[in-house]
Nucleic acid binder design. Sequence first.
DNA 1: CGGTATCCGAGATGATACTG
DNA 2: CAGTATCATCTCGGATACCG
Lengths: 127, 127
Amino acid sequence: MATEASNGDRFIFENTEDCPIRDVVARFGDKWSIIVLLALSKGSERFNALKRRIVGVSQRMLTRTLRQLEREGYVSRVVHAEVPVRVEYSLTELGQDLIKPLWALIGWAREHHDTIREARDGFDGRE
Amino acid sequence: MATEASNGDRFIFENTEDCPIRDVVARFGDKWSIIVLLALSKGSERFNALKRRIVGVSQRMLTRTLRQLEREGYVSRVVHAEVPVRVEYSLTELGQDLIKPLWALIGWAREHHDTIREARDGFDGRE
DNA sequence: CGGTATCCGAGATGATACTG
DNA sequence: CAGTATCATCTCGGATACCG
């Protein structure tokens, strides 16, 4: 992230794998991760149930997103050996913890959505 | 965002332009936006000074990122008609406000960075 | 049911060269 | 100094078809 370095009284922003912005935040800055995390915030759910609730997601992208979130340690995947197979997804403790600052951000976005739209319209109007 | 709908006791997640996740959060989920916002958090700065501090950014991407942030209303761009020209970038009030929930998120990422890395290693080790 | 495999188009990013 | 233009590459995301 913003690696602090005594470069006068300034920072140097690096772009290494040690940067939490690159290595953590940017990983759920994609199209579906945040939505999937929120979708799981109420409790565990099966694959197709999730898919139905998250309108617009393709099977491929839901699978990929869940795998990534599982890899980061935010989501837990449990396969029940039944016929047909049942797969339950849920948030881990880490995932539930991540939800908190995420909600703050989304709350902010909600609150300022109109302001931002006006800014865009103004900007586009000038050019 | 998570549009609340009384669908049983569940949510429906839509993917429209009215969704603040899509329309606000995803816009600074790109590679440079958050870093640029943080770089400006200390005060106004010139283009090339920014470019030097943000190690690894190309001129093209810095320009594009700044334009986007300006369009959203987070960044202000002031051109001083001198020779050579001087362009100062700074955060608007909205931009400074956005920084707050952003810091919370980055603080979280910093704090859990090691945990997440271990989760990844564990996941990759299993497969 | 819960995936995987394959293909494709669009956009993000970067390198390089040029300009008012 | 602060860009723009161009090209090349890579990843994201969607559509479709198939599988245990």
